[in-house]
């Protein structure tokens, strides 16, 4: 079998301090993205459990798998959940969802919970899109921009480079700093052309790490252009898979000349978390929570 350098680890988590059986309002948010899917379970406004998996070819099945994995070893079943919100690219294909809400609104709300009410600008770098969202102190969206047309500045673009250079995707950030001198960014925005450019650089004898550094900078610069279109107001937070890639994050915050807030949870769950939070409110509003 050939090595799949783009593959990252799937996992789940549960809060050991919470006994869900005491909870009145149990909700779930499921974010079915084009690359990864997450399920987040909330109990009475607190984060209880979550999962993060690769999206399969079938959206409904991916939603169910993500939920099952978040529920694993909790003793909880779907019957205990009062309200479910589907979000993300496959949000209308979540079989058990009571309502679908766009990932923009969910990210705003999720980031507000994860990073606190001071967060104003959220950059979400997902598998196949890149979003810039401005929110108020309640996590309500004031302005947004979503680019899902082009792979540059997305996780998919980084996966292409992981494969090209035969480096596991989780190591890219760190390796990109192991260079003698910071190289010029790759000049092509387009991933296809950047790949051609990188192949040329390798042929000229560039070490792989230098090529990685050049690509991480290019990705950072491109995302900066998107952020500047909306404008950046602090506090600033980064969510999504690329938030875990220091090679992009450090260069990005360097260009913007600001610091990003440190995440308290996995950066990939922001959308599902927002969904679960919307579900908390909706469960009360629709009279599903026993008093």
């Amino acid at each position: 079998m050939t090595t799949e350098y783009w593959r990252w680890k799937e996992y789940n988590w549960k809060n050991p301090d919470i006994d869900w059986k005491d909870a009145k309002n149990i909700t779930v948010g499921v974010d079915v993205g084009s690359v990864s899917s997450q399920a987040v379970i909330m109990t009475d406004g607190e984060l209880y459990a979550y999962s993060n998996m690769r999206t399969g070819s079938d959206s409904p099945e991916s939603a169910e798998n993500a939920l099952d994995w978040a529920l694993k070893d909790t003793g909880m079943t779907l019957d205990n959940i009062l309200y479910a919100v589907g979000t993300g690219y496959g949000r209308v294909n979540v079989p058990f969802a009571d309502r679908a809400i766009t990932e923009i609104a969910c990210h705003g709300r999720g980031a507000n919970f994860m990073y606190g009410p001071t967060v104003r600008t959220i950059l979400d770098m997902g598998g196949q899109d890149c979003k810039v969202i401005q929110v108020d102190e309640k996590g309500k969206v004031q302005e947004f921009l979503m680019n899902d047309k082009c792979a540059a500045g997305t996780g998919r673009g980084m996966e292409v480079f992981a494969d090209l250079l035969e480096i596991p995707i989780e190591d890219i950030g760190e390796l990109s700093f192991q260079v003698d001198e910071e190289p010029e960014p790759v000049s092509s925005t387009c991933v296809i052309f950047a790949k051609t450019e990188a192949t040329g650089l390798l042929r000229q004898g560039w070490p792989k790490n230098d090529v990685l550094a050049a690509y991480c900078s290019a990705m950072a610069l491109r995302v900066v252009a998107l952020i500047e279109r909306v404008g950046v107001e602090e506090d600033f937070a980064i969510t999504g898979g690329i938030a875990k890639n220091a090679g992009v994050v450090k260069r990005l915050t360097g260009y913007l000349n600001l610091e990003a807030l440190q995440p308290k949870h996995d950066t990939q769950i922001a959308g599902a978390l927002g969904g679960a939070l919307f579900a908390q409110t909706l469960a009360v509003k629709e009279g599903k929570v026993p008093s």
Binding site: V141, E143, L145, N147, D148, K149, T189, L226, V230
Partner: peptide, 16 residues
Amino acid sequence: MKANYGYHDGSGDFFI
């Protein structure tokens, strides 16, 4: 809420 629909690609900024 200001919604920016469109994209930025290698050839430029295209937003409504």
